[in-house]
Computed example of a mutant assay.
Amino acid sequence: MRAYVIHGPQDLRLDDVPERDLGPREVRLALVYGGICGSDLHYVAEGRAGNSVLRDPMVLGHELSGRVVEAGSAVTDLAPGTPVAVNPALSCGACRMCRAGRTNLCFSMRYMGSAAYRPHTEGGFAERPVVDRDQCVILADDADLARAALAEPYSIAAHAVNRAGVAGARVLITGGGTIGALSAIAALRAGAARVTVADIQSGARERVAKLAGVDVLDAGNDDAIAALAADPAFDVAIEAAGAAAALNMAMSCVEPGARVVQVGFLPTSGIDLNLLITREIELLGSYRFVDEFDAAVAAVLADDRLAAAITGRHAFADAEAAFASAADKTRHLKVMIGADAARR
């Protein structure tokens, strides 16, 4: 079968890879849709995503929906043709983080399409990916499988919103990309009083304003940012841009003593952490998700706003064009690949 294999920086190939036998609890899927994530783009551009460094060729992809082709001997509830959304996280269930209910911090986490460990965990951008039964969320036969593939990034957004505590709050979100835009919707669904999304790109601001119906702010407008810093208008912030300037802005524009949740991966320099001291800011990390995935599947299928988050679709064979589209943040929010993509 064919798969999207990253061999190194700027070296993404559509390779033929062998199919393996199923374990008792494993399921073989026919990929229907796969969403290209920012981490996929980082692997292609740099050969790494955050602290996860590519050391061997690896199949990319962790935002998936598909239909069951074959199930292992111990799987009795998934018939061929059953549509599923795929949770890419498979925690060990036994380490102290798992026992404490913080499965996203599992010491032996296997996350699809991740080079965090060696051997790397193969991703799902393959014609017939194999997953564990526990990773499959069964969908209705008529479910929109493109929207179902948004469940993973929406889970990340929902976890950040849960970490932030937004009910009744004035919320600032820095970064209008996929996670920022989905965080805006998740914050509204969680009862935020007002949501403002800041981004330096006008196209991103226009897109998120239309998608989520929220206020937007030009993050490149120094005068506007200075005015907000002088008289903060936000109770909590979610930093989704992954930029030092964006975190500095978030810390300066929330009320003293407020909480800032960092969900975007940051560079290693340029951050003014003195703001944590002088303004007694609470800075929290937000990594992947814990138990938000099933609820995220329901949310993305129920909330029609999320259909507009999908701005590009490419046939599975169009790897180069698909990744070029996904990298063009002036035009696209979420780009999908898959068997059905060319027909939609």
Rank of each mutant, 00 (worst) to 15 (best):
A193Q: 12
R259I: 15
L217F: 10
D199P: 13
D144C: 04
A244P: 10
V216C: 02
A192C: 14
A169S: 05
D134K: 12
A244K: 06
G242N: 15
R207A: 10
L188K: 00
P232I: 06
K210T: 04
G176S: 09
L139M: 07
A250Q: 11
A190Y: 01
L188E: 01
V137R: 09
A245R: 15
L211S: 04
P153C: 02
R133H: 10
A158C: 09
V137C: 04
A126Y: 13
G257Y: 10
Y154L: 14
I185D: 13
L211H: 03
L188Q: 10
R170F: 03
E255A: 08
V161C: 04
A230P: 01
R194D: 09
R133S: 03
I225N: 10
N248Q: 09
V216I: 07
A198H: 12
R194G: 06
G213W: 04
V161Q: 02
V166R: 01
I138Q: 03
A187I: 01
E206V: 04
A148C: 14
A169R: 00
V261A: 07
A258H: 12
Q135E: 02
A246S: 15
Q262S: 14
E127H: 09
A237Q: 00
A226P: 11
R128M: 07
T178E: 04
R205M: 06
R170K: 05
S155F: 05
G203K: 09
A181P: 01
A126N: 14
S183W: 10
C136P: 05
A209V: 04
D231I: 00
G165Q: 01
V254G: 01
G168F: 00
E239A: 02
T174P: 12
V130E: 07
I238Y: 00
V216P: 05
A245W: 14
A193R: 08
A224F: 06
G180N: 11
R128S: 11
F234Y: 11
I173C: 07
I200E: 12
A126F: 14
L211K: 02
L139Q: 13
I173E: 11
A209R: 01
C253R: 00
A204W: 08
C136G: 08
L182T: 02
D215I: 02
Q135R: 13
E152K: 14
P129W: 13
S252H: 12
A149R: 14
